[in-house]
């Protein structure tokens, strides 16, 4: 683990990979060091935002160094089932990029559980990984200016669901009618780090 400076109020912890990120995040979110306001996991890093009135970066750095990662507790959240219409504009292209037929892609996407590794990009947007999933899909060369809400998409090793209409460069493989972010619901964000997701194909 490498501790990188992030100004006077935050600390960035860089790790070797996503599994290490999730193990450290599991430990830090279960028992945040004193004075830490936010813990933000990402692909290779965990950011700790502190309240400088309450703690020092040195104290937080010490706490991180003595934190024991919890690789066993990767999936700590609920399980969510998302029905998907696999009729996305990029389904055929994404399948071809993976050397699959569209049906095989759907089978693989629905065949095993996904886990929300981290969130970002927009409120409620989860980066989902499928352990051993062999997904590696390039982003679109020309991002769309408007991706419809509920779009189920692929990029890199991740799958995701667009919470609302927004620009986006991921490959669209389908859509779900479930609102992954809904302010009228408690909690508003359906997908949070650790949530398990099972995609289910709606019969075409």
């Amino acid at each position: 683990m490498r501790l990188l400076p992030s100004g006077s109020a935050a600390l960035l912890v860089e790790l070797d990979g996503l599994d290490d990120v999730l193990a450290l995040y599991a430990a830090l979110s279960a028992d945040p060091p004193h004075g830490v306001v936010d813990v933000v996991p990402a692909a290779r890093t965990v950011l700790l935002m502190t309240d400088p009135a309450v703690t020092t970066l040195a104290a937080v750095a010490d706490a991180v160094r003595t934190t024991t990662p919890r690789p066993d507790t990767r999936a700590v959240g609920d399980t969510v089932e998302l029905p998907v219409h696999y009729d996305g504009a990029d389904l055929a292209e994404a399948a071809e990029l993976l050397g699959l037929t569209p049906d095989e892609l759907v089978e693989r996407h629905t065949g095993a559980e996904w886990t929300v590794a981290f969130c970002g990009f927009a409120p409620g947007f989860g980066y989902l990984t499928q352990p051993g999933g062999q997904w590696e899909v390039p982003r679109r060369a020309n991002p769309r200016t408007a991706v419809p809400p509920g779009s189920v998409a692929l990029a890199g090793e991740f799958s995701g669901v667009y919470p609302r209409e927004s620009p986006g460069g991921w490959q669209l493989i389908g859509r779900t009618d479930v609102a992954v972010f809904d302010l009228a619901r408690e909690p508003a964000a359906l997908l949070r780090p650790g949530t398990t997701v099972r995609f289910v194909a709606v019969r075409r």
Partner: peptide, 10 residues
């Protein structure tokens, strides 16, 4: 760079 967290002032 894989996306990473940031705070204001970055």
């Amino acid at each position: 760079l894989p996306s990473e967290g940031m705070v204001r002032g970055a």
